[in-house]
Amino acid sequence: MFKLLKSKWFWLILVVVIGAFITMNQTSLPREDITLLEKAVHGIYTPLQNGINDIRGHWGYIGDLVSDKRTLQNRINELEKRNIQMAIDNQALREYEAQAKRLQELLEFKEDNLDIYDLQAAAIIARSPNNWNKTVLINVGANAGIQRGMPVIHPDGLVGRISSVSQNSAQVSLITDREMAVGVILQRSRETNGIVEGTGSSDVLRMNNIPYYSSIEENDRVITSGLSANYPKGIVVGTVSKVNREPSGLLLSAEVKPAVDFDRLEEVLVITNYHPPPVEDEETGE
């Protein structure tokens, strides 16, 4: 025993273990700012990851040049068809928009549509180097006005939040990360409140705390409720793929398929001017 106490090796390991537990505890919750050492590490990696991303982009361009003309023509035809359909949808939606605005003015509703937000486009240059964390690194940082906590979206739906910022890059925690939780409602019923949590898998999220009397069904669209104050209201999170009854019988849980294809995600949009609304009585879900 005393021999062990005299060993430098023993003390070194003890210091490392205690130090690791302290830093783990200190960094388990979101921090205001990351340390200089972490910024230095990101500073080394960001240019390299940017380079790989550029090469990949050019490679894709070269691939397009040599690909079959017929394949490209088919793709153009398909896109043209989709474009026509979207133009028709757009026309119908504009009518609804005008109608909604009239009703909002009538009811003195505060506008919370996505079109009032400033969006900063960003490319994904790297992903988490392990399977435990679901994060991505984007090519804009403090220099472009990015701050911790800003919501990140994609035309398909919600992506996540900025979790740390360096000079020229920022880390986004995806909603599929196990540490992430989003307050949601069902788009159809507007009643069912729940919390969507990441499972670590990129194609399934879990929706918890759903009251047993909810009219939740498969294929229901899940959108942000705006209650968690981290995300604007009304962003698509995913669709319900399976509903389960919890063992207690009082609550339901559901599996949600994310709207965004996280494995193929290449570009995202950061909402740079979102300020959470003050909590009002009408928003407490009563």
């Binding site: 490392v16 590490v41 180097p129 964390n133």
Partner: peptide
Amino acid sequence: LEDLYIGRFIGVNVLAKG
């Protein structure tokens, strides 16, 4: 090095890989 890159739960990989 991995923990500093990830920036969350710094120390987890130090102990696991150690």
